[in-house]
Computed example of a mutant assay.
Amino acid sequence: MKKRSMVQRITSLLLAMLCAFCMQTAFAEPENAAVDLSRAKSAAVAEASSLSIVLAKEADAKLDVAGLARLPVLLYVCESIDAGIFAPTATVTISEAAAAVRGPTAFVEPYERISAEALLKAAVMILAGDAIQALAEACAGTSGAAIAAVNARLSSLSIEAECMSLSGEGTRLSANDLLKLGGALAKSGTFCAYSANYMDEIVHEKGNRTELVNPNRLIRNTTGCFGIATGSSAEAGYCGLFGVRRAETAYLCVVTGAPDSAARFSMAQEMIEYCFTAYKATALARAGEVLVEAMPVRGGTLDTVDLVAGTDAVLLLRQGETYERGLSLPEILTAPLPANRAVGKAYFTGPDGTVVAEIDLFPKSDVSAATLWEHVRRVFVYWLHA
């Protein structure tokens, strides 16, 4: 009996350990296990508008990212053109410093005069360092002013990195930094006009031509790829930032330090395809969209006011998951109500009840406080119709 009891105890212990292991396996986060990230120094993939991370490895590590270090300068250039600060129809004179930049180049010469549009093609399609620097100098007036503007933009994106030269040398970025830059570039009309181009050419002042071939292989073999950039060096390995949009869903993917070009592209493609298979992006609200109708107002020139979303909001859900929306608002608002002051929040909860997103709610229009005369007029109108 004692021997049987001992056997039973050992058997029970083994079964308990097996059950514990199975439970741990069943409820562990599956994301990183779904794609082999071991071949890269860092990697990350996120929904493009919210930058909600799906897969990540060493995403905060500041690394040498080869030519991708030029992206902050390229972002400054594209946003300057978007804002009308500099015209793509302008003619740019190439400085000696820009012409001397190494790496992928547009093969421009010192003092050559060339259209900004030609330089943009080279800058966006192949991250041509000479084109990017020449454009940045033209946008800001001087190299120093351009560097200051780039650093200000990095700060506004909460990227803790410093641009020390317009060539990108010395700038170390994390995968999360690159996702933020990719998100901003994806919103630039100037950038998107050229980012998915596979082949083009530019014509120089003397009539010679430079053929541009986009090194991003995903443009040709991944449905919906819209760029963004690749780079490589002996120290950094093979790096890439990729964007893919299908229907209403878009993802940004970063790979740094891959051992070779094929590994960089295959890993990025695996990460992106996994996201489209396992997740869906759901638009919760668009900036300015009415989320609450006819909210009561006390003491105002209006009795009610609609409330609108202050920002876009996108929620990343596993396929088949749902969400619920709730409101955090007083029962009645009190005038005056400026349209630029939030009066409450809409919040969204996931399947487990956790709040996964919040949006500030704003009055659709200003509501002034009612004057004494307006109060008297309302009483009179009410009396007439009573």
Score class of each variant (00 low, 15 high):
155 S>H: 12
155 S>I: 02
157 L>H: 11
160 E>A: 12
160 E>L: 10
161 A>R: 01
167 S>Y: 09
168 G>F: 09
169 E>Q: 06
172 R>Q: 13
172 R>C: 13
181 L>V: 14
182 G>W: 01
186 A>V: 09
192 C>P: 00
192 C>E: 14
193 A>K: 15
195 S>P: 00
196 A>R: 14
198 Y>F: 14
201 E>W: 09
201 E>Y: 10
201 E>K: 10
205 E>K: 02
205 E>V: 05
211 E>P: 03
214 N>R: 04
214 N>D: 05
217 R>W: 06
218 L>I: 03
218 L>P: 00
219 I>Q: 01
227 G>N: 07
234 A>T: 12
237 G>N: 06
241 L>T: 07
241 L>H: 12
244 V>Y: 10
244 V>W: 08
246 R>H: 02
249 T>R: 04
250 A>G: 12
253 C>F: 06
254 V>I: 08
255 V>G: 06
256 T>F: 08
258 A>M: 05
259 P>H: 13
259 P>S: 10
260 D>N: 12
263 A>C: 14
263 A>M: 12
264 R>L: 12
265 F>C: 05
266 S>Q: 14
267 M>A: 08
269 Q>L: 04
270 E>F: 01
271 M>F: 03
272 I>L: 11
273 E>V: 08
274 Y>I: 05
277 T>K: 15
277 T>A: 15
279 Y>P: 05
279 Y>S: 07
279 Y>W: 11
280 K>N: 10
280 K>T: 12
281 A>Y: 03
281 A>R: 10
282 T>G: 00
283 A>I: 13
284 L>M: 15
287 A>L: 01
288 G>K: 08
290 V>D: 15
292 V>C: 13
292 V>Q: 05
293 E>C: 07
294 A>E: 15
298 R>L: 15
299 G>Q: 13
